[in-house]
Design a protein around this nucleic acid. Structure first.
Lengths: 335, 335
DNA sequence: GATGAGCGAGAGATCGATCTCTCGACGTCA
DNA sequence: TGACGTCGAGAGATCGATCTCTCGCTCATC
């Protein structure tokens, strides 16, 4: 019979009691080194591994941490954005000896998610709020386990939660600096939808930095975060400000769309017009010319949020309840 | 005190024994309906949920299924390819009442992965082999839990495993048909690296279909799956076969790169040259013009593999050990 | 030489659900 | 009316690790 060996088997083989075997394996100091060695040897010989379920039951901890992700558009936008923090968080959680459990927030049926998080399946959660996921943080406020969020609180109600987010305004400032450093002064911005808070902050940061430099941030043309929308917005922009020489698009897709309008209008990039995108996605790398883009530190966000969740679980969390991580600029050929 | 309610609490409140309460909650038929109602009422009142650890211990099942993913290039290629099957598998596993546990295969330290899969943390595994992950299927052959793979066996040794894969050759055939239907007969292919088996099959399928139609599949220009490589390969192709009017690129990135070479050479797409990509990634959607591309059924693969893993666990798996799922063609403006 | 401190190890209890075994009650049939 | 069968429900055992409590031994000190 090939039943999995238990601690009893190890103890028997080593000629000690269960308690001693447990102590030896846990590495507790109150064990005679000779006995500990015997136990370890026995464990190795039997191929013993501790039964996670038994440990979980006794300890009252599941030994698992959830990663909650918006499931909305698997193919579309959020894919590239959520993949990085998911992987980073998974790595941290696994390295901490916990099971990373991936949970999808399907939008509808949030109840089920909350129930799962409350039922003892996991000890803590990392919640990725980037894009979509409307007010999930509020729903999760009542969950009886520690939660670390990637993204920003959707309202005051979740102000007592823990958050890790990218410095959106700072990213806007970096975009401004990039254009200013390239000697551009006739600027303009291609905005996203107004309801998207982070997008507004990017623009705010951009405008602030421009004004600090004594430069007019220029007109702000609104639109959706889509390629065609970017093309249309850029066409509109060229009508409003034909002499534009520096554009900040708050999304790579919009920037890529804008490139087409510029090419169609006979403007050379970056000679006539420089353009900076946002997010540094594969689209930025593959557009023609490749886009200079502001990169959000998605891995870093995931890593920090996971560490935060583990620290909350251990009761050792410290520092501010909102961490802001700086963005960086990936320079390519559009500036 | 706010200890989580246990079955004992429910039983006491309902005035029955633990055993009866357990039976009632499990929905077993051998319970007086009146008592069952009382138990359910009590459970609801107390907010009882069964303790997963206790259940796992008693049942000898962890109640979790792993999803193993290559961690290699989080930012790069595999991101878009693995995201879809991950999500699909996650959904299926969660809907089956199990915890989806995400595990990264970091390449090095495969031992740790194997140990985790063998230690009782999970009851089964879905392993995503798409791209990279060399021979992971062989390493996992000895894991004592059922494993369902997405992708193909890397050798004969893993022939007794369970696999779900996309019909690569079929995809190549579809690409050929798309070009033939568009009336193109002066064809050529842009290949990937030779060691990449699925890429070879795509070309084989393409060539087979061409020959069936009595058309020469044309020259095959090799290269890497990268944008610049695509440009260079297309330049070479235009030298080899200046009159080409239909190109099959075995990757969207290569196709997108080729578009640049074609544009530079003054060829209009699709008027002068039609081109079909592979994978239907965001690059296909955002290139200029947008690429017609062969789409691999990544969600379907993930869904099927997860269902397979659950079936293997339940002992109800049937059908062939290798399932092949057809690709589809997403028609855009390049053909 | 005796007492106390300190340390290591064993026995038993515990975590909570679930499975098995047993028993009691009721109904049916001879 | 008595014996047997059926069905529902309770008591206890069990899964395996770990925590607590207690005991015994050794060494040091008076």
């Amino acid at each position: 019979m090939s039943r999995r060996p238990t601690l009893v088997d190890v103890a028997r083989l080593a000629g000690v009691s269960r308690a001693t075997a447990a102590r030896a394996i846990a590495g507790q100091p109150t064990v005679d080194p000779a006995l500990a060695a015997r136990v370890e040897e026995a464990a190795r010989e039997l191929g013993y591994t501790t039964n996670p379920a038994a440990r979980a039951l006794r300890r009252g901890r599941a030994g698992a941490v959830a990663i909650v992700v918006p499931a909305s558009d698997a193919q579309g936008q959020s894919g590239p954005f959520t993949a990085a923090p998911i992987r980073a968080a998974t790595r941290v959680i696994f390295d901490a000896g916990q099971q990373p459990v991936l949970l999808l927030d399907e939008g509808r049926d949030t109840d089920r998610l909350v129930r799962h998080l409350s039922a003892g399946h996991v000890d803590a959660a990392v919640v990725i709020l980037l894009y979509e996921s409307v007010e999930l943080d509020q729903v999760l406020a009542d969950v009886p386990i520690p939660v670390a969020h990637v993204g920003r609180p959707s309202s005051e109600r979740s102000a007592d939660g823990w958050f890790v987010e990218a410095d959106q305004a700072g990213g806007g400032r970096q975009a401004a600096e990039t254009l200013l450093d390239a000697g551009r002064h006739r600027l303009a911005t291609l905005a996203g939808p107004d309801h998207f808070g982070p997008g507004r902050e990017r623009l705010q940061g951009f405008a602030d930095r421009c004004r600090e430099a004594g430069v007019d941030p220029g007109p702000r043309v609104p639109g959706e975060y889509e390629l065609e929308a970017g093309t249309r917005a850029a066409e509109e922009l060229l009508r409003q400000r034909p002499d534009v020489d520096g554009i900040f698009a708050t999304s790579d897709l919009v920037a890529a769309g804008a490139l087409r309008a510029l090419a169609a209008a006979g403007r050379r990039v970056p000679d006539d017009v420089a353009i900076v995108g946002f997010d540094d996605t594969v689209v930025a790398a593959t557009s023609d010319p490749p886009l200079t883009s502001v990169r959000q530190p998605f891995d870093e966000l995931g890593t920090r949020a996971a560490r935060l969740a583990l620290a909350l679980l251990a009761g050792t969390a410290e520092g501010p309840r909102r961490q802001v991580v700086p963005t960086t600029v990936t320079v390519r050929e559009s500036t």
